[in-house]
């Protein structure tokens, strides 16, 4: 593998940074869910990079990534269900309008 390891690692960090930027600026709950998926994608990219460069014969890296994907899928389904309930009950999807507990 001639590609320096910094390239995919930097790409993962940039992907995480873009996801963080979006999750902090947007107020639409569905979009925030999308940015969480983007950030998890960056994390997966880092995991696979280290696996490929230093432990290519070890199956632990792909399996850990598989579990991260499982948790991401579960999180997305539960998050979307909660967002649908919020839309049904409160009529909004903006997270800063859902402030019933605000003092």
């Amino acid at each position: 593998m001639q590609l320096p390891i910094y390239f995919p690692l930097g790409l993962g960090a940039l992907l995480f940074g873009i996801g963080l930027w979006g999750a902090l600026t947007r107020t639409n709950a569905v979009r925030i869910l999308m940015f969480i998926e983007l950030m998890l994608n960056g994390v997966n990219l880092n995991l696979m990079t280290f696996t490929r460069y230093y432990y290519p014969e070890n199956a632990t890296g792909p399996i850990l990534t598989l579990f991260v994907m499982t948790v991401a899928a579960a999180e997305a389904s539960i998050g979307l269900a909660i967002i649908l309930q919020i839309v049904r009950n409160r009529g909004t999807v903006e997270v800063d309008k859902v402030d019933l507990l605000k003092g």
């Binding site: 390891i5 690692l9 930097g10 960090a13 995480f16 940074g17 996801g19 963080l20 902090l24």
Partner: peptide, 24 residues
Amino acid sequence: GLLAVVVGLVFAAFMTYVYYVSEI
């Protein structure tokens, strides 16, 4: 959302810097 842009950029730059200086 300027603060969020700064936070995202600083995070990405910090991670890149850490990768660059770390003893890989």
